[in-house]
Lab assay of single mutants.
Amino acid sequence: DYEVGESVTVMDGPFATLPATISEVNAEQQKLKVLVSIFGRETPVELTFGQVSKI
């Protein structure tokens, strides 16, 4: 299970290999909103559970 505030690594898509912090969890739809730090700015990205891995 994923929790808000948890650190994960993006495994898929254009942000693969980047660390991210979970900002929202939708367990019903198996989706997460995460904040990816790009060029010093936090960018919100919506991903599925399968696109991230716990650190």
Rank of each mutant, 00 (worst) to 15 (best):
E46G: 04
S37P: 07
L18N: 06
I55M: 10
E24R: 06
V25A: 03
T9Y: 13
N26K: 07
L32W: 00
G50P: 06
V45W: 06
A16F: 06
T43F: 15
K31H: 06
R41Y: 12
I22D: 00
T9W: 15
T48V: 07
V10N: 00
I55L: 11
V10W: 02
N26F: 13
G5Y: 04
T43W: 15
T43I: 15
T17G: 15
M11N: 11
F39P: 08
S23C: 14
I22W: 00
T9Q: 11
E6A: 08
A16Y: 05
E42T: 11
P19N: 12
Q29A: 12
E42A: 10
R41A: 12
E6Q: 12
T21R: 12
V34K: 00
Q29F: 11
D1C: 13
A27F: 15
Q51L: 04
V10Y: 01
V10G: 00
G40Q: 05
G5C: 06
V4E: 05
E3T: 13
F39S: 13
T43R: 05
M11W: 05
P44E: 15
T21W: 10
E6M: 14
T17A: 09
V8T: 02
A27E: 11
D12K: 08
V34I: 06
T21L: 12
I55P: 09
K33H: 07
T48P: 06
D1P: 13
A20C: 07
S23H: 10
D1Y: 15
Q29W: 08
T43P: 02
Q29P: 03
V45Y: 07
S37R: 13
A20F: 03
P14E: 10
V34T: 03
Q30F: 07
D1Q: 13
P44L: 15
T17Q: 11
E42P: 10
T9N: 07
P44T: 15
T48Q: 10
S23Q: 14
I55W: 07
T17D: 10
T17E: 08
P19D: 09
S7G: 08
K54M: 05
T9F: 13
D12P: 01
I38Q: 11
Y2Q: 01
T21E: 07
E28G: 11
V4R: 06
V10I: 15
L18R: 09
E24I: 06
S23A: 13
F49C: 03
S37E: 13
T21V: 15
E24Y: 10
T43K: 05
D1G: 14
V4F: 05
S53M: 10
E6P: 01
Y2R: 02
V10E: 00
P14S: 06
P44K: 14
S23N: 08
P14D: 08
D1A: 13
G50L: 12
G13P: 03
E46K: 04
S37Y: 09
K54F: 05
T17Y: 13
T21C: 09
V4S: 04
V36Y: 00
E28M: 11
E28R: 09
M11E: 07
Q29M: 11
K33E: 05
V36P: 02
V34A: 07
V34M: 03
S23I: 15
T43V: 15
M11Y: 04
N26I: 10
L32G: 00
A27T: 12
G13W: 03
E28I: 11
A16S: 09
A16P: 02
K31I: 12
A20P: 00
K31C: 08
R41P: 08
V52S: 01
N26L: 10
V36S: 01
T21N: 05
E42H: 08
S53Q: 13
V25R: 02
L35R: 07
Q51T: 04
A27Q: 13
P44W: 14
Q29V: 09
V8I: 10
V4C: 06
E42S: 09
F15C: 07
K54D: 03
V34W: 00
E3Q: 14
K54I: 05
P19T: 15
K54A: 07
G50Y: 08
K54G: 05
A27I: 13
K33I: 15
I38A: 09
V36H: 00
V34Y: 00
F39R: 12
S37G: 08
I55S: 11
N26D: 12
E3D: 08
F15N: 03
S23D: 06
A20H: 02
S53C: 11
T17K: 11
M11T: 12
D12G: 07
L35F: 08
M11R: 09
L35D: 04
G50T: 12
E6C: 08
L18G: 03
V34G: 03
F49S: 03
I22S: 01
D1E: 13
F49E: 02
G50N: 12
I38D: 08
Q51V: 04
G5Q: 03
P14Y: 07
